[in-house]
Design a protein around this nucleic acid. Structure first.
Length: 266
DNA sequence: TGTGATGTTGAATG
DNA sequence: GCATTCAACATCAC
């Protein structure tokens, strides 16, 4: 589920439920998603510990332990937290659960196992090793424009590249292109300064609003929600074009032809 | 039954 | 070396 706004919601949930609570037991049902540690070591490392704070960058959520180490939660496509007391509430695809001493548990649910959990002794080192870009809501306009310089890749590919910019995923990238009326396949270096700035502004605006709503995949949908226009064949605003579906930057992409202009290198 | 899904990565390609 | 693309990962729902 998660792109930046959703991971932000996970962070709020994690902070509210799981900070400053001693972990009495750790149960690992499947350690496939643990990338640099096996299930037994994970249990050993976390038992008796307490999370003291958390930090989000892009789609990555880091939980800081009272020994100074961090646990990285990356949710992949289907990762989710569930905090519960009754065993009956255990999610179907829970991969591990932290049992706090207050009787509640934080379960990590993940059907597709694309999530990844890492135990980190040096968070900064990890971030620099993977080359994770600046958070999409933290990066300045200047730095954003600098990242764009000379880039031939599509605007969609640019927005999705977590090394350049962390947090934008497939749906929000489409939404940003839609709102700026830029065809997602437009090469970045074909955009003029005005469009580049518009992309930055739309990105900030959309992510901020999404964080406020924090509910796109749960609650009932309404007309002004994002992504509702992503329906093949739907007519564009003002009748200028039709919604197309195409693979761009390796991901299924929706856009309105005509309405969203394809910029090209002259 | 086949296909694709909110993500990342490592191999392959140019 | 760099930029970019693509298959692979695992499971479920339509």
């Amino acid at each position: 589920m998660p792109e930046l706004p959703e991971v932000n919601t996970f962070k709020l949930y994690f902070d509210k439920t799981s900070l400053n609570q001693k972990i009495g037991e750790v149960h690992v049902h499947d350690d496939k998603i643990m990338r640099n540690i096996d299930g037994d070591s994970f249990i050993e490392k976390l038992t008796g510990r307490t999370f003291v704070k958390s930090f989000r960058r892009g789609k990555y959520l880091f939980g800081k332990l009272d020994n100074g180490n961090d646990v990285l939660f990356h949710f992949g496509m289907t990762g989710d937290f569930k905090y519960y007391e009754d065993e009956m509430d255990q999610p179907r695809h829970e991969r591990f659960a932290l049992h706090f001493e207050n009787g509640y548990r934080l379960g990590f649910d993940c059907p597709r196992k694309f999530a990844r959990i890492l135990y980190l002794e040096d968070l900064e080192k990890y971030i620099s090793e993977v080359g994770l870009g600046e958070d999409a809501l933290v990066i300045s306009e200047n730095d954003f424009l600098k990242k764009m310089e000379g880039r031939k890749t599509s605007i969609k590919g640019f927005l999705l590249n977590q090394k350049l910019l962390a947090g934008v995923g497939n749906l929000y990238a489409d939404e940003i292109c839609f709102q700026t009326r830029i065809h997602p396949a437009s090469p970045v270096n074909a955009l003029k300064a005005k469009q580049k700035k518009a992309v930055y502004k739309a990105m900030n605006n959309i992510l901020t609003i999404a964080i406020d709503r924090a509910r796109y995949y749960k609650d009932e949908k309404s007309e002004d929600d994002f992504f509702q226009w992503r329906v093949e064949g739907r007519k564009a605003p003002k009748g200028k074009g039709v919604c197309q579906v195409e693979k761009i930057a390796g991901r299924t992409t929706y856009y309105f032809d005509i309405y969203q202009k394809l910029y090209q290198i002259e």
